[in-house]
Each structure stands twice: as structure tokens, then as C-alpha cells.
Design a protein around this nucleic acid. Structure first.
Lengths: 176, 176
DNA sequence: AAGGCCATGTAACAAGTTACATGATTAA
DNA sequence: TTAATCATGTAACTTGTTACATGGCCTT
């Protein structure tokens, strides 16, 4: 048996709460873990097919609109338990804006600062959302832990954006 | 012509400095942008083949050990210039530890805190490295900008790790 | 009852990872 | 001069993205 990948594991984790279709699962994933683990519908369907083939999930009653729900099997539950007990690997960040900045000599500070500033509203919005989650209460400890990460992260990004003009201020464009 | 992907663009960007082999490019990428844009050697070779097919790079003199260097063409330079002038999309984060925490009910706070703590040395090490880059000087403004992001990010992670025990402290495991 | 929207899923493609192969160098 | 290591690249597989197809549901 191959190891579960994190996406497959998350699917099993969500199915623990009861039967869900691929569509539901994609939606749930987007809401609950979407900020640090992005999953598309296509991935969900593929993983569901493989999980079914391995006997870790099984199909329930089909319903309207071709809806096909799945539920967790005992083997699936066991496999999930094994996965979650495994120490997770390091995070990965892919930050296109930093790439642009790394080659920033081609653009010069002004264009770069504009591009960076364009990202600010997104971060402000997310930060506000996370803060309101905490303020509204109703989160369990685990959710509070992940949301608190989001807050720390967004604050860091905003702080960095604040510093950027001072850092890039002295530079001149080297290309055209 | 399809749009350049960021990895292909980075390859062109590095080739602006002169001829490099796929191996060199992979190495350079790991050093210069590896912290926010991970690229494997295999990707580099694939992109080089495609870039060559599109006339954006061209092969130079083969050398020992099957070394095949490439250089930028004028078309390649133009395409890179177009790419870097395009506003970059949002970053993506994939954080397996947060996934584990999101399903943390299965493990309980003690195991989670252990797992989280296991990541701390990595972050401390990276933070120290970034700080020494700044302290040693010799970085241009653009590098300082990306390194400063790294510092802000690692500080945020460490702060969050500090808060975790207090956040998870009250929880009990629900499974097992 | 017609038109538009939404839920649901599939298929094709692109990007990313892992494992392997091979011939030069270097060190013992 | 043999063994170990390193530079270089290829191939196979897995994961991630984008575009498409279809039919039920709701609104007018």
C-alpha cells in the first residue's frame, strides 16, 4: 500500500463526519483548509476513485444531478489514523511576487512597488477575516491554532509591504 | 505563443547573465530563488527543451560530462521582459502541519505540540541565515527585499509556534 | 415552459517529484 | 588503478490546473 498523500488524507478526514459527494468535499476543503492546502474538484474526484479502489471509501446511494456520495470504511479510518500520526513535512511557499522582485533590476523600484502594493488589499482582507473568526468565537482549539497562523502570516506580509519602499527606495532600474 | 510560466521565466532571467547548463540553472535557482520558488532539475531540462523549441534559448558548445550550456536569444530576452512586466498572481502556501492541526482532534494537543516543536529548529536556522545575509551586506536592494520577506515570515512562524501551547492547551483528544 | 444558473462530474494537459543511468574526476 | 563521488541528464510517475460536458433546479 502506498502512503496516503495529504489531499487523500484530508478527504478521509472530512468523510469521518458522514457521507459527502466529491463536490461537497471540494467545497468543504476550500472552506476549511483552503488557506493552507489548496485542492481542486478534479483532484478530489481522482483521489476518491483511487481511495474507492483501495477500499478506503465506498459509494453510497446516488442521488439527483449525478450526485455520488461516498463514506469512510473501517480500513479508511485506520489509514487516516496512521496518516495523521505521521510527522508532517515542511511547508512550501511559492511566491511569484518575490520572483518578480528577485529579477527586479529589469523593472526598477517604482513598478515593483506598484505591483507589491496591488497585493495589499488581499492581505488586509484575509487578515480581517481571520481576526473576525477569532472574535466571533465558535472555533475549537484546532481551528484557532490554524487561524492564528493565518493572522501571524498576514501581519508579517503587511509589515514587509510597509518596509518595501525603504528597502527599494535607493535602487534604479538597470534595463531599459 | 503560450504565456511563459514562472519557472521558464526564471530560467531566461538567469541566462541573461551568460551561458549556463541545465545543471547550473537548477543550482542557481535553488540558491537564489529556492526559498520561495522551488524548481527541480527535471523541470529545468523540460523547460529548456521547450524554450529551445520556441527559439527563446539556443544551445552553445557541448562540453565534458555531457554538459550542454544554453544562452538567451533576443526573442528570449523580449519574452522575459514581457513576463516580468506582468503583475504576478498571489502566493500559494501548502502547509502540511496546519493540515494535521486542522484534524488535530484525532491526536490531541500533546502529540500536536510535539510535531509543531519538531519544526522549530528549521525555522530558527533559516531565520539566522537570512539575518546573516543582511548583516554581511553585499546584497542589492532586490535581494534585500526578498530576504526581508524571509525574515518577516520566519519570525511570524516562530511567534506562532510560541503561542501554540496556550491555544491548544485546553483541548483533549476526541479519538483514541 | 424557456432561459439561465448551479451542481456534478470528466478529460486533457501542464507542472512537479522520484528514481535511475552514465561518464568524468578525484582520492585512496 | 580502482573505488567513490560528482556533474549531467532522462524517464516514469504523481499531482495540479483548465476547459469542457450535462442535466436538474429555479425564476420569470
Amino acid at each position: 500500500m502506498t502512503e496516503l498523500n495529504p489531499t487523500a488524507a484530508a478527504i478521509l478526514g472530512f468523510l469521518d463526519a458522514g457521507e459527502l459527494s466529491g463536490y461537497d468535499l471540494a467545497q468543504t476543503a476550500a472552506e476549511v483548509i483552503g488557506d493552507f492546502w489548496h485542492v481542486t474538484r478534479s483532484q478530489v474526484y481522482r483521489e476518491l476513485a483511487q481511495l474507492a479502489a483501495r477500499g478506503l471509501v465506498e459509494p453510497g446511494q446516488p442521488a439527483a444531478r449525478a450526485r455520488q456520495p461516498y463514506r469512510l470504511t473501517e480500513a479508511g479510518r485506520a489509514e487516516f489514523a496512521k496518516w495523521i500520526a505521521t510527522p508532517p513535512p515542511a511547508e512550501q511557499i511559492r511566491y511569484p511576487l518575490l520572483l518578480t522582485i528577485a529579477f527586479g533590476d529589469w523593472l526598477g523600484p517604482d513598478r515593483l512597488l506598484d505591483m507589491a502594493a496591488a497585493h495589499r488589499p488581499d492581505h488586509e482582507r484575509r487578515l480581517a477575516t481571520y481576526r473576525s473568526y477569532l472574535a466571533d468565537g465558535g472555533l475549537d482549539e484546532y481551528q484557532r491554532a490554524t487561524v492564528t497562523f493565518g493572522i501571524a502570516y498576514e501581519e508579517a506580509v503587511l509589515t514587509w509591504l510597509d518596509q518595501l519602499p525603504a528597502i527599494l527606495g535607493g535602487a534604479r532600474s538597470g534595463h531599459g
